[in-house]
Simulated scan of single mutants.
Amino acid sequence: MPATILTTDDLREFKMELIEEMKTIISKVQPKKETTKFLKSAEVMELLQISPGTLQNLRINGTLPFIKLGGVILYNKEEILKACKEHKY
């Protein structure tokens, strides 16, 4: 079996072909629908630029719907955005 010598130009050409092939494959993949995104309290406070006390008040008065899983409070991102539009946060 004869030996083949690869040059840096050969490797560069191979790399470019590989990149183009990967781009083609990635472009064919359809983006998945975003599933329901839940945010933790810290993320909601950052998003709305509010304090922990204000967030608690919004939970208590029912402005922001939430669920509690094992001691962790989670907020549906879509519902947060909807509440922001309704209440102009």
Rank of each mutant, 00 (worst) to 15 (best):
I60N: 11
A83L: 03
K15Q: 12
T7N: 04
T63D: 06
K85T: 07
A83Q: 10
V72S: 10
I26F: 04
M1Q: 15
R59E: 05
Y89E: 01
K88R: 14
L81H: 15
G71M: 05
T7H: 02
N76S: 05
E43G: 00
I73S: 15
P52I: 02
E79C: 10
K85W: 04
E21R: 06
N61P: 09
T36C: 11
E46S: 09
K68F: 04
K37Y: 11
V72L: 10
H87N: 15
E79W: 12
S51D: 14
K15A: 15
I80L: 11
L39F: 02
H87S: 12
L74E: 02
K77A: 09
K15G: 14
E20I: 01
I25M: 04
I80N: 00
L39M: 13
C84D: 06
T8W: 13
L74G: 03
I19G: 04
I60D: 10
T36I: 08
P2V: 00
F66K: 03
F66V: 03
I25V: 06
Y89F: 15
S41N: 08
L11W: 00
M16A: 13
S27D: 13
N57E: 06
L18P: 07
P2M: 01
K23F: 07
E17K: 13
T36A: 13
V29Y: 03
T24Q: 13
E34V: 05
A42T: 02
I19P: 01
K88P: 05
A83K: 01
E43L: 01
P2K: 15
G70R: 14
T24E: 05
T7L: 08
N57K: 13
V44H: 02
P2N: 07
M22A: 12
